[in-house]
């Protein structure tokens, strides 16, 4: 077994702050939208918590973005070789949908320079470079509707902004379930989660 350094400190800090924000934003977002559900706090407090964690998540996002841009690792999220990407994505989908049940090996082997398998890469690309910015922008607009009235108008109106924010919220929540589950598909159920705390992931000597 060997240990490889997969998750730099900055990424780990960003990740757990982001996880905390996700949790707080989902819970308070649900309360804001569905008053008829059991409430954990008042609407007013829920708004404050939602705004606070929205701000933290936004700053955290920019921490992530800055780190990945300045280290050049942003390419980890961008499928530069499309042929390799589609071939790998098919192999990965085949693994998750079939091979894993038969005990086949994971076709992707994480390295610091190739951390995500193609399905992860496409999912994170969608989440981090499309959905998160969209959620941050729409959230920012809804946070101060008057101030961003012009931009809201450009996006098609307040309802469009709200629907977009809520729709992204649904997708991110759904993603969260899949994401958490997939973290348990490492060599051991806690392998990937542990790596997100320590930075290191244990691998077999042959890199598998």
């Amino acid at each position: 077994m060997k240990k490889i350094f997969l998750q730099p400190l900055t990424v780990r800090i960003w990740h757990w702050i982001n996880a905390l924000c996700f949790f707080a934003l989902i819970v308070t977002g649900l309360q804001l939208r569905y008053q008829e559900l059991p409430n954990i706090t008042s609407f007013r407090t829920a708004v404050d918590i939602h705004n606070l964690f929205g701000l933290i998540m936004t700053l955290d996002f920019f921490l992530w973005l800055a780190f990945y841009i300045f280290t050049g690792k942003i390419r980890l999220y961008i499928p530069l070789d499309l042929k390799k990407f589609f071939t790998g994505a098919f192999a990965q989908a085949l693994y998750y949908g079939y091979g894993i049940f038969l005990g086949k090996k994971n076709p992707h082997h994480a390295t610091p320079d190739d951390k995500f398998n193609p399905l992860q890469q496409s999912a994170y690309f969608m989440v981090m470079l499309l959905l998160m910015p969209l959620q941050i922008i729409t959230g920012l607009f809804l946070w101060d509707i008057k101030r961003f009235a012009y931009w809201i108008g450009l996006l098609g109106g307040l309802k469009v902004v709200d629907i977009t924010h809520v729709a992204v919220f649904f997708f991110l929540t759904a993603f969260l379930f899949v994401h958490v589950y997939l973290t348990t598909l490492g060599r051991t159920p806690w392998e990937h989660i542990k790596a997100m705390f320590t930075g290191y992931e244990e691998m077999e000597e042959n890199g598998k």
Partner: peptide, 12 residues
């Protein structure tokens, strides 16, 4: 939203 979230939950 219910369909999407349930879909995410259903996968695991």
């Amino acid at each position: 939203g219910i369909i999407v979230v349930c879909g995410g939950l259903l996968f695991p």
